[in-house]
Design a protein around this nucleic acid. Structure first.
Lengths: 235, 235
DNA sequence: CGACAGATTGACGAAAGTCAATTACGGTGG
DNA sequence: CCACCGTAATTGACTTTCGTCAATCTGTCG
């Protein structure tokens, strides 16, 4: 039976551009994979290869310098698309941060299918444009913000993006578990683990956030956090 | 007469996806504009509005924090596409750095036309994917490189991108004029003008580059520059 | 020949990085 | 349920890089 009909991200992933027959055809080319935390799906520099939809879990996109310094260049959630269609080589690693399910396609298969289905390409274009906007905003964070500003912006961003699993409420939430450890937060923000730790504790000391366990964050004073986040990105 | 037939970027811009009739139809919706250096075509936050092809000149995409800190998030050259189709609001300013010619379309007109011409959307998708890759590599630069590494990477990048005007040679070139002043270099690299100046002079002192005039750069030792760019041992 | 913006240089300070302990959490097994 | 272990996180002391502020220089252009 066609697994796509019961796919939890069917209506949110790019597949939502397709009708039942089309999605079945695409589904026939796809393979379902489970990833364990830390498992890498795509390696930087590898000839591309593989694209996928994220069904469940959180994955990071990262690049590094030869001496090991690493920068996380993207984080993807369920319904997001990963990989580089149309034959360029992969520019970054894709690694699972949590247990993850993905639906993979060979690059060539997907490219061909996409060219024949403009609605699919359109969805992919909209997604890519949105991701480009998001990435460019991150340039401002990395290039021009202080450590405290970075962290505040990051926490607010997380409080808005992590809502997805339970679609019950649709505003930002004030308590959540990060899918990242301290080192990964550092790799997202272009900081060291020590600086992340120190600034986080400053926020805690000021009563702006609570950190009841390693990965849990409670936003106690959203106003204050927004104030720090920006000496304000103009929006 | 249809101006597109004589357009210098006709074969490189996204228009190259269209046949003669189609390009004429698109051309009818477009308006030609001249920009003077410093002139802003699109403002951050403005409801989108306007998209365009760059015909001549260099433009920057930038965002800033409320206190004036600025980050350049992209630089566009002739044949590049600017603006945000499909109804999101503009996320950054678009400002001419040199005299520039652009061919603008109202967002709505362009969106409608694009939806009816999948080949055009495909070209745009390929461009957007490439730009996303490029932007993500810049995250690594901003988040993890030292000032010297940033500058070396920047100079090498420029030596490869600035070839466009004269298509005579098609490798990197070793002498070129930057379309940027020091402040703009700083805004691209997430540094201050003073740091840019100092590190540039270090390179000069070491005989790696020559700086015969304000905006001119001569790469005298590409090896050394590449060494610094990738995990620089020097300094 | 100035005048002015842009660039350089210098002295200093502060933010973040580095290195090295130390502590706390969370999972495991008794 | 509790003790133990290993990893992750925190904390502290110190260093380095880069930013800040201010003065000076330089080239471009009227």
């Amino acid at each position: 039976m066609d697994p796509c009909t019961t796919c939890v991200v069917r209506n949110r992933a790019i597949c939502s551009a397709l009708d039942l027959n089309e999605v079945a055809a695409l589904g026939k080319m796809g393979r379902h994979h489970r990833l364990v935390p830390g498992q890498t799906l795509i390696w930087e520099g590898e000839d591309s290869l593989l694209v996928a939809n994220v069904i469940e879990g959180v994955l990071k996109l990262s690049t590094s310098l030869s001496d090991g310094r690493e920068q996380i260049v993207g984080v993807v959630y369920p319904s997001d698309f990963i990989g580089r269609p149309f034959g360029a080589r992969a520019q970054h690693n894709v690694t699972a941060l949590t247990e993850a399910h993905v639906c993979t396609f060979s690059g060539g298969d997907f490219d061909r299918f996409a060219q024949e289905h403009p609605q699919l390409e359109h969805k992919l274009l909209e997604r890519t444009l949105a991701e480009l906007d998001r990435t460019r905003r991150w340039l401002l964070l990395l290039g021009r913000m202080t450590a405290s500003e970075k962290l505040a912006t990051f926490l607010l961003d997380m409080s808005e993006r992590l809502v997805r699993p339970d679609c019950s409420s649709n505003g930002p939430i004030n308590a959540f578990d990060l899918p990242f450890g301290r080192q990964q937060i550092a790799d997202i923000l272009g900081l060291t683990i020590e600086t992340v730790s120190r600034r986080l504790n400053d926020f805690k000391a000021e009563g702006i956030i609570g950190v009841p366990s390693r990965r849990r964050i409670e936003i106690l004073d959203r106003e204050a956090l927004a104030g720090i986040a920006s000496s304000g990105s103009v929006r």
